[in-house]
């Protein structure tokens, strides 16, 4: 795992500041930005995928076992797009 930037010694910087670990920004949890949280009602969900497609955070994924969509609250910033765009009104924004 990458060290926080204020602990890295100059000797530890890859030549040219190259980052060799793809996608390691995922250790940064943007969920802390959230003031509102999407609440999902699987019974109303019509499984149209719109929430998944329109999520700028890629924070929504399908769970084929439970037949429900799942929110990753580590990253969900609470923008509310999923709730606003849901054609079945299966998602509601609530105070977090």
């Amino acid at each position: 795992m990458t060290k926080p930037m204020d602990q890295i010694l100059w000797q530890e910087i890859e030549p040219g500041g190259v980052i060799t670990e793809p996608g390691n920004a995922s250790c940064y949890h943007t969920g802390a930005w959230r003031s509102q949280k999407p609440e999902y009602n699987p019974n109303l969900c019509i499984k149209c995928w719109r929430c998944y497609i329109m999520c700028p955070e890629s924070a929504i994924s399908p769970n084929y076992d439970t037949n429900e969509f799942v929110w990753n609250y580590d990253y969900c910033k609470g923008c509310g797009i999923c709730a606003y765009e849901c054609p079945a009104k299966a998602i509601e924004m609530q105070e977090d």
Binding site: M5, D6, I8, W10, I13, P15, G16, V18, I19, T20
Partner: peptide, 22 residues
């Protein structure tokens, strides 16, 4: 896959320049 040309916050910029100097 690598990322080249990331930006440097004040916490890391001095270290990056030191590395270049060395």
């Amino acid at each position: 896959v690598v990322t080249m040309g990331a930006f440097g916050m004040p916490e890391i910029f001095t270290e990056a320049k030191k590395a270049l100097d060395v």
